[in-house]
Design a protein around this nucleic acid. Sequence first.
DNA 1: GTCTATAATGCGATAGAC
DNA 2: GTCTATCGCATTATAGAC
Lengths: 214, 214
Amino acid sequence: MSHSSRSRLRMQTASLPPTPSDGTRRRILETALQLFATRGYHDTSIRDLAKALELQPSALYAHFPSKEHVLAELVRIGHEAHHEALALALKEAGTTDPAEQVRALVRVHTRLHALHPQLALVVNEEFYALTPEMAAPALALRTQSTLLLAEVIERGIAQQRFSPPHPRATAAAISAMGVRLPYWYELDNGLDVDTLADVHAELALRMLGVRERK
Amino acid sequence: MSHSSRSRLRMQTASLPPTPSDGTRRRILETALQLFATRGYHDTSIRDLAKALELQPSALYAHFPSKEHVLAELVRIGHEAHHEALALALKEAGTTDPAEQVRALVRVHTRLHALHPQLALVVNEEFYALTPEMAAPALALRTQSTLLLAEVIERGIAQQRFSPPHPRATAAAISAMGVRLPYWYELDNGLDVDTLADVHAELALRMLGVRERK
DNA sequence: GTCTATAATGCGATAGAC
DNA sequence: GTCTATCGCATTATAGAC
C-alpha cells in the first residue's frame, strides 16, 4: 500500500456471499476483499492485510500458500456465486418466454453487482493479475455465464421476439450495465436495488426490441 | 512486473492520440501506455519501462519526476482527448435535435474506446492509483463529459422525445457500453468500428425510448 | 496456528560523471 | 540527457520456537 488517501471505492464492510468456511480463513477473505477492492491487489501488501487483521504476516501462510491464492479464492467465489445466481434465476423464472428469461437474468445480474460491489470490482479488475492456471476455473464459469444470456437472446431472435441490432454487441451492452455499477451506484441514495434491477431489465428488453409490457 | 504471462489486454502497439510532444517523452508515454494497459500500473516497474525503452531507469527521471507523473499524464491525455472529441461531435452534429445529438455523442464515445483500447483501459482502471491532487484535472474533465450526455438527455426528456425508465441509470448504461469495449471488442474480427458505433447509437436511442428512424 | 526474526529480492528514486 | 552505481526501504515468503 502507499501513502496517499486515493481509493477507487468507498471503504465499507466487505460483503462476501455466505460460504462454508472456518473463522480465520473467512476473516482473511473478507478483509482482503475490502483492501483489494479499495486499493487494488498489487497495491495491497501482505503486511497491509496482516495489519488490518491484527495478525503477523507469517500467520497468513497457515491459511493460504500465497497472496495470489487469496485473490484466486475471491475470484472463484465471485464467479461461482454469479453463475449459480444466474442459473437459479433462469430455473425459478419457470417459463420459456425469452423476454421473461432475460428479465430474470438481468435482474439478478444487477442485484449481485449492486449488493456486492467490492466483489464485483475485484472479480472484474483483478482477474487478470492471476496466472492463467489460477484464473482457469473462474474463466470457465465466466464463459458459461456469458453463454446463459447469449442463448436466451438467440432463442428470442429465433422466435422473432427479439430484434437486437447486433446480438453479440447487445449482449455485451446488457452485461456492461451491471458490471459498471460499482463505479457509480451507491445504496441509500434514492434508488433502491429492486427499482434499479427493474430499470436494467427494462433497458435490456428495449435494446432487444421488445415493446413495453403492460 | 512479475514472472507469469498474465495480461489483461493483448500486447499491441499502443495507440496514443496525437500530442505536441518531443521524441523521447512521447516514446516513454507510448511504451508506458502499452505496459500499464497490459499488466497494470502497480505491476509495471520503472525498471520494466526502462528496459522496454532500452534506457537505464535513471534516464526516465530527466523526462518525468516520478512514475506517478507518467500515469497522470496518460490519464490527462485520455480525458482531454475524450472530452474534446465529445464536444466537437456535438458541435459538428449541427442540430439541436436531442436524438441526433445522442447519436453523435455515442458514436464518438464508441469510436474512441474501440480505437484506443489501451488508453481507455488505463484511464478507467488506473485512474484511482493517482493521488487526488494528481487526478483532479482529469476528474474535472470527466465530470464535464458526463454532463454533456446528461444534459442532452434532460433536454430530450423535456421535449418529450425521450422516455428513459431512469435518466441517471440510462445515461450510465449508455456510457458503460463504450467503457467496456476494451474487454471484448477486437478490430479485424468481422465487426468494424463504424458499424459498432452505429449499433451503440441505436441501442442508446432504444434505451431512451426513441422508435426506429427510417 | 501464531509468534519473532530474517532471507532474498525488487522497488522508486538519487548522486555524480560525462 | 544518458550513463554507472547505489541508497533506503518495501516486498513476498520462509525458518524455527512455542
